[in-house]
Write a protein that binds this DNA or RNA. Structure first.
Length: 471
RNA sequence: GGCCCCGUCGUCCAGCGGUCAAGACACCGGGUUUUCAUCCCGGCAACCGGGGUUCGACUCCCCGCGGGGUCACCA
């Protein structure tokens, strides 16, 4: 049996990382088993649809490399893969159920229903629609909601992640399969699609677990064999008190791209919330994830989204990149002042900050002074515990001596070191002080790459003029 | 509230009846170093509680407690 999984988002806004994790696990299972991964757009709620968000979702998936074998833009044998284009299919199945007496029109108004619900709540008992099933329902003319008739019974099933799960008959009720606007509900049409598209493993996040009996019962009514269900543990926000959601401020996935997070790092991070391979390995390439992923090792308990860990992993993945590869990825992240800079020069600058980068948006802050004259603020001196002890005259004297020494320097790293180290002794000071002063002068910062390499890359002209400016 | 799921360091997690309860992130020390970062050493820190079962429970069972989810013409 070929494994077929799917990711079926609603185009109601940007994709956030909690949802990405669901997509990732489905994708990993398909890729691991050499099966197929489908993308299906579930746009049956016209009111909530956000124009353009389906494109945003696809863009995010492409950025992450979660490629789909069938879906919008990649037609396959079971298309279309957009639910609003499949309305006829759902209607056909609905009609069949009506004819068999397995579905019926709902005669109640929204208000009447609401009143019944409130009454039940006031009496502290669960509301069940089936207690109010109309005895002689009106013929379904398509303007009333259509309900499926489900037999109330207890269900027990095997979930690929949670194991044995059971729920009582109160979890089953006649639910709406076609809304008054003619669109099907998720509960109904996703089952039809998953079946028709031969999806073998259906992954859903934990919020759906109590709906599973409903899905199973629907399969029974349709006389279909249900797929393997897998409930994924929730990803919680940093407070640990709520599921990650855009309402709670989860950032869109593409924000991470714009911050300069690498897709492989994001995938690595998300995969290890709720899954591990049982070894001590923490850093994975995407290929390794594909090779090692298995549903059986997916955790039952939820995990917190700890961005610090993502940042750490991103740094690891950046360091693993070759300089050439990293350079390719930095496009769009350089400071404005680097706009017309020479590619070779930028590449060299990049080599100096390669292992310091945690995410690419840090690039301007780390490299700006290589491209434009830094402003040396007073604070750079006063906030440096070594330099603030120096008087202005002492500083001038040191810089003068440095300028003097560098006059005949060829500005190779070796020569710079050969000149400046002895100067420390001659000036009767400490390396931290002299080098710190030079660094502040030429970079405008107390934090920068190694001094000699920085001076070498900057070259004699800029270095000397910046030093002179300090006097 | 009913129902359901979950419960190991602050965080991600290993463990699957017998371990000094491992690793990583974060944090704190120390080393390397001209700063930062990297790298290397070290430290802090956990089995929710109570009952069982057992020669022996983090591991199995029950009851609490805690957290999350769900009870829509949303997905």
């Amino acid at each position: 049996m070929t494994v077929r999984t799917r990711f079926a988002p609603s185009p109601t806004g940007a994709l956030h990382l909690g949802v990405v994790r669901t997509a990732l696990f489905a994708w990993l299972l398909a890729r691991h088993s050499g099966g197929q991964f489908l993308l299906r757009i579930e746009d049956t709620d016209q009111k909530r649809e956000v124009p353009g968000s389906a494109d945003g979702i696809k863009e995010a998936l492409r950025w992450l490399g979660l490629s789909w074998d069938e879906g919008p833009d990649v037609e396959g044998p079971y298309g279309p893969y957009i639910q609003s284009k499949r309305l006829g299919i759902y209607k056909k199945y609905a009609q069949e159920l009506v004819e068999k007496g397995l579905a019926y029109a709902d005669p109640y108004s929204v208000e009447e229903l609401q009143a019944l619900r409130e009454k039940a709540q006031a009496e502290k008992r669960p509301f069940l629609y089936r207690d109010h099933r109309p005895e002689n329902p009106p013929a379904w003319d398509g303007t009333q909601p259509l309900r499926i008739k489900l037999e109330p019974k207890a269900w027990e099933w095997d979930d690929a992640v949670m194991g044995k799960v059971s729920m009582g008959p109160e979890m089953i009720d006649d639910y709406i399969i076609i809304k008054a606007d003619g669109f099907p509900t998720y509960n109904f049409c996703h089952i039809i699609d998953d079946h028709l598209m031969n999806v073998t493993h259906v992954m859903r996040s934990q919020e759906f677990i109590s709906s599973v009996p409903k899905f199973l019962a629907t399969h029974e009514v349709l006389r279909w064999e249900p797929p393997i269900n897998a409930i994924l543990p929730p990803v919680m926000d940093e407070t640990g008190r709520a599921k990650l959601s855009k309402r709670k401020g989860a950032k869109p996935a593409l924000d991470y791209r714009d911050q300069g997070f690498l897709p492989e790092a994001v995938l690595n991070f998300m995969a290890t919330i709720g899954w591990n391979d049982g070894t001590e390995q923490e850093v994975y390439t995407v290929e390794e994830l594909v090779a090692k992923f298995e549903l059986a090792r997916v955790q039952k308990s939820g995990g917190i989204f700890d961005e610090k860990r993502l940042i750490y992993l991103n740094g690891v993945h950046i360091r693993r990149l070759s300089l050439d590869e990293l350079y390719l990825r930095t496009e769009g992240f350089w400071p404005k002042s680097a706009e017309n800079a020479d590619a070779m020069y930028k590449r060299t600058v990049l080599s100096l900050v390669h292992e310091r980068l945690k995410y690419l948006a840090e690039l301007p802050g780390l490299t700006e002074f290589f491209f434009t004259e830094p402003e040396v603020k007073e604070a750079v001196i006063t906030e440096n515990k070594q330099l603030k002890k120096l008087s202005a005259d002492e500083r001038k004297a040191m810089i003068s001596a440095t300028l003097n020494e560098l006059e005949t320097c060829d500005f190779t790293e070796e020569d710079l070191e050969k000149r400046l180290r002895p100067l420390v002794e001659r000036l009767n000071t400490k390396t931290g002080i002299l080098f710190g002063l030079i660094r502040a002068s030429i970079t405008g910062s107390n934090v920068a790459p190694g001094l000699f390499e920085t001076m070498h890359v900057l070259g004699p002209e800029k270095t000397l003029s910046r030093l002179k400016k300090m006097i």
